[in-house]
Amino acid sequence: MLTRLQLELAACAVVFVLGSLSILGALEHEVGWAADGPQAGYFPFRLGIILVVVSLAIAAQALMMGERRRQLVLSRESARRMLGFFLPLVAYVGIAQVLGLYIATALYLAFVLRTMGSHPWRTSIAVALAVPAVSWVLFEVWFTVPLLKGPVEVWLGLA
């Protein structure tokens, strides 16, 4: 599904973009070496150039890789498994932004345990309730580190 060459090129593209951003960002400042040494943009500018140049070089290497380029780094089967893990994770983080970490954690655990782990509802819900409860005691009560809370906690008067 995904060959080595494709993944190599994708990685190079990401590095290239990060490098370009670093150059652009550095240009908002002085990028030279003044009487008091290197200025704010000096290092980001040069790091950006290194990233851009090296990403192109790696891309070139990848294109000349020969047979290895067609090597499969991700089979359809594996990709499905990974997405099965990854999509709930993204949903978890997305829901956490709105509803807070406690509810998102409970929903995530209940869903993943039930669908991917095929555990009975009983187990899934028990774990889904236990983990946020333990987190509450650990973080809010013991460590007084507030976790991300949403409208439900505010409504319950807990935040």
Binding site: V93, Y108, H119, F139, L147
Partner: peptide
């Protein structure tokens, strides 16, 4: 299948 998702939540928290 139980400990894995819990580790994920520990990471996110």
């Amino acid at each position: 299948t139980i400990i894995g998702p819990i580790i994920v939540t520990v990471c996110i928290v």
